[in-house]
Design a protein around this nucleic acid. Structure first.
Length: 603
RNA sequence: CGAGGUGUGGCGCAGUCCGGUUAGCGCACCUGCUUUGGGAGCAGGGGGCCGCAGGUUCGAAUCCUGCCACCUCGACCA
């Protein structure tokens, strides 16, 4: 393409709304334009990048035997009601755009497609002979993000590749899951990204095993914990570790209640008593709302130096939902004063709560509130002896307490502890956990039979029996991946695209279009490079050389050819964007050389 | 949803407290001349319902009320 003929506008100033480098650069270089919060137009250069990313994904997916299709973006509410996710997605996480058509039918705009694909599978897959099968699509998704940000990183409309596999049994699912893992590694490697696959929480999608693919970058919204030996890597939401050993700075041989004024926090209490934070049992009050409207007050006891991981807690509360005749969690909060007033029978001893907090703090006759605390204890607290904890009396704590003596150990012993960098790894205590920021660009799940059972998607197995389909699902954020490539590769002058996903491989810059020789050589090179399969731009704009160089660097084209002052020796200048290396090269060698570089980069 | 902030030409901003010529600056855009390898110089020019709706006033970008949009932090986040 000739730059003089295409819509090409670059900005000298950073857009006010952009925070992170990749967002600023994509806007400045003319790749994207915002039309509303979380809504971005993909301009022609961006679209070429996205198509390249898509094609790499397609290649690798097809190589595993997956088949491409295209599902609907408009989805009937009934499908989501069948799977039980309508409420979670429109109320709890509120992530689905829901609308009513003119007949009053409820519809959702697809944030993901398990329901649709399961419906198709239910209709079409009758026999084990049809299995396994893996279907995927590359399509725009809609999510009503509470707070869109970072350009394409968290938009309300974005492009995603999502794949769904169907199997007769779990072993077959595992095989495809592994194949997807390998394909994702291939995809990211081919796109030129530095990444890490980590264990992940499966969130509202549900299912058992799941892994996220994280592109490593400081602007990442997720924290990854990993070990140097490469044996362990997990999202902090999911990460497990060995907690630090509990310390005993001061022993409390006798159970007694002590006056401890102004010590509502662990730090203030440990300082006041001269004990270690790990000698204290901390009791945290949460409030969970289930999908049937039931509110349950949850009291969690955990060792004082440790923190509760909300994601783990959310999952544990989901597991016990049936005890309250519910199926999913809609909201999970630490209740503020206002929230407490809705159910508290008397003021809570905040900061001084102990594991035995009486149920009569809850008003007994409330219709939608469970009259008893749901008590849970983290293993770190179970092991403590002669510990310090609250007295339920503001201004006082108890010391020298023991489970089974002064306090009954809650029946629910669950790991709800947040792992942090520096903790020892479970597989090898000599390995401390390291931390890194990551951008989640892919997520693979072993769903199992959750959706198929819920929606009645069954097949007839060899034994003649009907069984639910075993499912997996595998997503890649296409637009997010493209932006994360920029986040990982830029300098003061602009974007540095990895060759495989650059919108063009090369750009021929004519410093002075009024110089007939410069133009003639440029035209020839431009034609020859393109003929050789090197995707090449020609900057034939009526601009000064400096502007053209700046733009070429900002846009990030990997290789630049300048038909400038060395022309009189029969040479042109060739510059590599990534390294800035420049060399004068005989005109006759240019096409072969650049072609060689491009081929080498494409692998 | 809580807190804070911003809406003025395509982009980035000043002007708003303290109402009063013709609403201004940089970039971008158009014309001409000069310049021509690192975001040029000079001269001329076009482009604005000052977020929207009410109100106060002789007079509102500026004061008041309501609404909307957007941004940041928090909460939340397949």
């Amino acid at each position: 393409m000739r730059l003089s003929q295409i819509l090409f506008v670059t900005l000298r100033d950073d857009p006010a709304e952009a925070e992170i480098p990749s967002h600023k650069l994509l806007v400045r270089a003319g790749y994207i334009r915002r039309v509303g919060s979380g809504m971005y137009v993909y301009l022609p250069f961006m679209w070429r990048v996205l198509q390249k990313v898509s094609q790499i994904i397609r290649d690798e997916m097809n190589a595993t035997g997956a088949q491409e299709c295209l599902l609907t973006q408009l989805q009937p509410a009934e499908l989501w009601q069948e799977s039980g996710r309508w409420d979670t997605y429109t109320k709890a996480e509120g992530i689905m755009f829901a609308l009513d058509d003119r007949q009053g039918r409820q519809l959702g705009l697809g944030p993901t497609h398990e329901e649709v694909i399961t419906t198709v599978a239910r209709d079409m897959i009758r026999s084990y002979r049809q299995l396994p099968v893996n279907l995927y699509q590359i399509q725009t998704k809609f999510r009503d993000e509470i707070r869109p940000r970072f350009g394409l990183m968290r938009g309300r409309e974005f492009i995603m590749k999502d794949a769904y596999s169907f199997h007769t049994h779990a072993d077959s699912l595992k095989q495809t899951y592994e194949a997807m893992h390998d394909a994702y590694c291939q995809i990211l490697t081919r796109c030129g990204l530095e990444f890490r696959a980590v264990q992940a929480d499966s969130g509202a999608i549900g299912g058992s095993g799941s892994q996220e693919f994280m592109v490593l970058a400081a602007a990442g919204e997720d924290e990854v914990l990993y070990t140097e030996d490469g044996q362990y890597a997990a999202n902090v939401e999911k990460a497990v570790s060995l907690p630090p050993d509990a310390e005993v700075l001061k022993s409390f041989n006798q159970y007694e209640k002590l006056e401890t004024p102004n010590t509502p926090t662990i730090a203030s209490l440990s300082e006041f008593l001269g004990c270690a934070p790990s000698q204290i049992v901390k009791n945290v009050l949460y409030q969970v709302v289930y999908d049937n409207g039931m509110t349950v007050l949850v009291l969690i006891s955990i060792r004082g130096d440790q923190d509760v991981n909300d994601t783990k807690l959310y999952n544990e509360l989901t597991k016990v939902a049936a005890d309250f005749e519910a199926t999913t969690v809609i909201a999970l909060d630490v209740p503020d004063v206002e929230a407490q007033q809705k159910w508290a029978a008397k003021p809570l001893p905040l900061g001084y709560i102990n594991p035995g907090l009486e149920d009569d703090y809850i008003q007994p006759d409330l219709e939608h509130v469970s009259p008893k605390f749901l008590r849970m204890v983290d293993p770190t607290a179970v092991d403590l002896q002669q510990f310090v904890t609250g007295s339920n009396d503001p201004g006082f704590h108890v010391v020298g307490a023991n489970w089974g003596a002064e306090f009954e150990l809650p029946k629910l012993v669950v790991d709800v502890r947040t792992a942090i960098a520096g903790d020892r790894a479970t597989h090898d205590p000599s390995q401390p956990l390291q931390t890194a920021r990551g951008i989640e660009i892919g997520h693979i799940f072993q769903l199992g039979t959750k959706y198929s059972e819920q929606m009645g998607a069954t097949f007839t197995d060899e034994d003649g029996k009907n069984k639910p389909l075993v499912m997996g699902c595998y997503g890649v954020g296409v637009s997010r991946l493209a932006q994360s490539a920029v986040e990982q590769s830029y300098d003061d002058n602009g974007i540095i695209w990895p060759v495989p996903i650059a919108p063009y491989h090369a750009i021929v810059v004519v410093p002075n279009i009024n110089d007939a020789d410069q133009m003639a050589v440029a035209e020839t090179l431009y034609a020859d490079l393109n003929a050789a399969g090197v995707e090449t731009l020609l900057d034939d704009r009526k601009e000064r050389a400096g502007v053209k160089f700046k733009d070429a660097e900002l846009v990030g084209i990997p290789f630049r050819v300048v038909t400038g002052r060395s022309l009189k020796e029969g040479k042109v200048e060739v510059v590599k964007r990534a390294s800035g290396e420049s060399e004068e090269m005989a005109i006759a060698d240019v096409v072969d050389t650049i072609k060689g570089w491009v081929d080498a980069a494409l692998g």
